[in-house]
Structure formats: structure tokens, C-alpha cells
Design a protein around this nucleic acid. Sequence first.
DNA 1: GCGTGACGTCGAAGCGCTTCGACGGGCGAA
DNA 2: TTCGCCCGTCGAAGCGCTTCGACGTCACGC
Lengths: 337, 337
Amino acid sequence: MVKITDVARHAGVSPSTVSYALSGKRPISEETRRRVEEAIRELGYRPHAGARALASSKSNVLALVVPLRAGIHIPVVMRFAVSVVTTARDYDHDVLLLTQEEGEEGLRRVADTALVDALILMDVQLHDPRLPLLRALERPSVMIGFPASSEGLTCIDLDFKAAGEACVDHLAQLGHQVVALVGSPPEVYVRQTAFAQRVVQGFTAAADRHGLASSVHPCEAGPGDARRVAERLLREQPALTGVVVHNEPLLEPLIDAFEKLGLRVPGDLSVTAICPDELAEAARVPVTSVALPSAEVGERAVELLMRKLAGDTDVPEATLLAPRLTERASTAPRVAP
Amino acid sequence: MVKITDVARHAGVSPSTVSYALSGKRPISEETRRRVEEAIRELGYRPHAGARALASSKSNVLALVVPLRAGIHIPVVMRFAVSVVTTARDYDHDVLLLTQEEGEEGLRRVADTALVDALILMDVQLHDPRLPLLRALERPSVMIGFPASSEGLTCIDLDFKAAGEACVDHLAQLGHQVVALVGSPPEVYVRQTAFAQRVVQGFTAAADRHGLASSVHPCEAGPGDARRVAERLLREQPALTGVVVHNEPLLEPLIDAFEKLGLRVPGDLSVTAICPDELAEAARVPVTSVALPSAEVGERAVELLMRKLAGDTDVPEATLLAPRLTERASTAPRVAP
DNA sequence: GCGTGACGTCGAAGCGCTTCGACGGGCGAA
DNA sequence: TTCGCCCGTCGAAGCGCTTCGACGTCACGC
């Protein structure tokens, strides 16, 4: 193995000079730098990561904790992970993959052994048991999603309130006057992050702002539920022409149910959703939707982390990503009766 | 930060004794071990990963290179990755996530900087450009999939030949006498690993063994192709009652096409597939299939790597995992005409 | 003409751990 | 009894890098 002393000898300088030439932490003459670089190239020198970590107390590795829980859309996780890795590389960092399964002990382990410099957590719950640990840890972290209190932590996610609004805005713009929100199953409103509530807030606010008649329905997503939900919506709001679905498994079945009840999508009924793009695209009727911008979240998460690692003290605690609505085949202007 | 000297002092022993108590590389008296363990617990000691890596020239980290290419089934990759991480943890190792995008330079980087001890590569191509590098690298590696020549490398994958056979065996057992293989698009047979060919071999061998009439059809997987393929199959083999599909995007459309042509699945036609379980399960008619055992592949890959790291010299170059066929709704006994 | 400071470089001291050789004590074999 | 050996422990020497303080040189300002 070729080491820094070899490079130094070959270039006719001291090891510290090689180090400074590499890190740029002290001025080095043009001539010397050139010689060092040449020596490095000729010898094929690669600094030993462990030695570097030991001497500098920086591993240049980030931990990424991915969820395993059922109900998580895998491609979204994967896209996010890839985006984290790619962005981390731009900052000369690598990514260590951890599973949720490892729990708090896993976090403590990689943090305390100095295996990683910082952490990224996905799938943060409202009252995530890892929160106290994260606050106590001496290493910076960024969480995807918002817990009940993000005090002293850094969080990032899609702006679900704005996403709810965007869907309603789109429907209002198309002339729809009676809209409904088909929400996530009731337990999601309790267990998970606050995102489900925020969709409701956005939905309601936008509907009020546009002067639309609106209603909100948290819905189970079992096999037979779609039909029942569709019937209930139509019973309660016979003039319904716009639906926002924030319930992934229910999306397709619900559209089917509406059509079976004689309503054409988007002819009689416009449907928008908040869901991963794959789902919206793959549907029989491709659905106009606000996507979870996983790649962007990953990128931004790493950027936030890098700022924290650089000692930036005014990194925002909360970052909300603006929703982007993609129009597809499931929405159309309202046809006056 | 609490270090090994702190533990040593607290336990009244020397640092080396603490190290040996931890690693078990030299005998330590029961009494001493107890005192050391207690000191560790009381002080909350965690060995510094970098220092350890430097001193022992072992990072206890594996690199996992995941593919990005379109056409790869993401959940399979993810399941594989999770299984690698989980298994690696059982062996006290962590996993560094790399993307294919980083290419050979990325492999060289993590290997040469001693960031990782060993590598796992997914999605290995027939003539993968990384092969020479892997052979040259001083670190062990395991590849998922088989290149043209696996000489001197360690590879593991589903036994696709046996998978092809298993499908035919199943159909034969149900009494089917005329079978067809709907294979991957022609370019797959060229570009990728040899797995597509192996399926053909297994299919043909088993059909011959059972004395069935059989035919093989590499197929494109465009939107209109399903219908054409179905028609062609029925034209060429009017008595066809068993189909093996090794072409993921074509699976569902093909079944639909058959039904539109008046053939009931599984009433008139039994269909089996080689594809990820999700796909087989999610189909309108759940498909009897041989799955890609991603979790098992991940586990076995790590085990192979651990053996190599332990200095085991007779680790098999090729490991073929036995297929497991799951019966679902798409196959049934042949009904005599 | 001399003090001052920036520039460019060096040497040495660690970073926290593992590992090697050494050593004292105890025990079994001769 | 004595020799030799194994057990259990220690001290010291690194592992390969970064970083701090120091030093010589040169240019500039007064």
C-alpha cells in the first residue's frame, strides 16, 4: 500500500506538505502542488480512510436509516436513497445503509463509534422514540417528515398542506364547485406523522378560499371499501364533481367504483391524488397528482446536513418542499349539467 | 469521548487487556473479563471505528453496489439490500451503499482507501467492465448474476435453468402436453447476464424429458405486443394449454390478451411465470410463479463474503439457488377436450 | 534600514486502537 | 526437584493521517 510518506519522498517534500496540498488548508506553492499531484498520480496514492478518520475525527460518511414497515412505497424509498447517495458523493461523502430494524441502538452505535459524521432518518413518526436520542447525539441529523415537536431538530418533507391546496386549486380552476377529500385510514391520522392532517388543512382552506362545497372522509383501504366510499360520497354530495385522494391503495379501486356507478372519469368526475408518481402513471386512467418529490427531498436533506457539518448554525429547523402537480388524464373542466 | 485507556484505568488493567477481552484473541481470566465488561458498561465505551480500522486494517464495512438501470424491478433490489444489511449485521459488519453510476472508479475508491473490506455487486452483465478490476482488487467480492466467465470470481443467483424446468414440471404434472415459453426481449439475450438463455435450456430440457410439445418465443414487451404474441402462439400451437412467461412487463397484458381471445386462465390455459412475487401476486389472476429469492440471495452473498474474509479458500465460484414455485390461481389441471 | 507579517514548508506530536514480544507464576512431566 | 510450557497480563510500537507550532524567506511600509 502506498502511503503519504511515499508520496512525500517521491515529490521531495514532507508528509505534512502533501497533506496540505491535498486539503488546501494551508497555502502551497504552485510548483510544489504540481509535484505532489504528479507523485500521487504516478504512485496511485489513496489516503487510508481509517487513518484519516482517526486523525481528523471526520469519517466523511453519512448514515441513512430506511424504513421497513409495510405500507411504505418501496420505489419512493429507493429513489430517495439513490438521491442521497448521489448528492452525498458531490460533497465527497459516502453513505452507510441502516435499517429501521436496528433501532436506537443502531443509531447510537454508528454515531458513537464515529463510523458516521451525521444521520438521515426516513419515516419519522409523530412521537418517534428516536427523537430524544437524536437531540442528545453529538452528531447532526436530518429527518424526513415531521414529529410532533421538531424543536432543535432539522426536518424536511413535502409541504402536504400546500399539496392539499394545489389539488383543490386545480379542481377549482377547472370549474368544479363540489369537492371531497378521500383521506388516509383513520389510524394514519394518529400513528404517523402529521402529514395527513396537513393535507386536510390545505384541502379545507383552499376549498373555503375558492368558495367550494367540500367534505373530508378518512377512509379504510380494504378490498370492499372502494365501492362503499364511492357510494357514500355520492349520497352525501350528489353534485360532487371533484375528488382528491390521499390514500394510495384506494386510488385505483375508487376510480373503478365510480365508473361502475356510472360516472366517467374525467367526464363526470375529476380525480386528483397525492401519491407517488408511479402509482398515478400506472393507473388505468393516469391520475393528475402531486408527487412525493423523493429525489428532491434526498438532495435537500444532504445539503442541510452538509451545512450543519460545516458549522452553519442557522440551518432551518423545518423545510417544506413546494408541491408540483402533474396534470394527467383524470381531470377535466366541469361540464355544466 | 471515552477511550480504551479510560476503560483500562477504570478496570485496573492495561489497554491491551481490554482489547483482548473484547476481541477474545487471547485468553483472559473470567474475573478480569467481568471487570472490563463492567467498566465498559459504566463508562459507555464505544471503540472508535476509524482507530480500529487503522490498527487492524479491517473496517468491518461491506460495499453494496446497486443498479440504477431502467427495467430493474426496484422492490427486488430493495429487498435484496435490506437482506444484505441485516445479514451483514449478524456478522458485525455495516454496509456502504454505492450506485452503479459511480462505476469502476467508485469501486476502486472504496477498496483502495480501505473504506470497505469487501464488495457485493448486483446486476452483473455478461461482459461487465468491472470484472478485470474485481479480479485485480485485493479485496474479496461477490456478484449477483453470472458474467460470461466467472473464473476466479464468486457469483450467486437463482438457478434459472432449474426455474425453467420447475415451471414445465408443474405444467406437466397438471397434465399439460403442449407448452410454450414466452421469453425476454431479444436484446436481453444479448446484453444481460446469461440468465435468459438458461431459462430456455431448462424449459426445453424439461419439456423433452416429459415428452411435451414445446416452443420458445423471445418477445418484445411493447403495448401492442401482448395481443400479437398471444395470437402467434395459438396459431403455431393450436393445442397449447401451458405457458411459461419469463418477461415481466408482458405477463399481465398477455393473460388479458388470451382471455380476450376467448381462452380462460386457468380454465383453458395454465400460465406460470418467473418474476418477482409482487408481480405474480398483484396480477388480476394471481400467477403461479417462481420468484427471484432476493432475500435469500442477499443472505447467501454475505455469507460467501464472510467466508472469503475469513480466509476460506474453497468458497465456491458459482452458487445456484434452487427455485421455489408458488402455486397461485393461474394454473389448473388440463381438461381433456 | 528594520520591523512586520504573510507565505511556504517542515518536524513532531498525537488520533485510539491492535498486536507483538516479553514476562511472571503456576503446574505437569520427567 | 527442576525444566518447560501455557496462561494471563503488560508495555511499547506502530497503523497512516492531520494539525499545530516553528522557522526561514521575502516583500512591503515607515
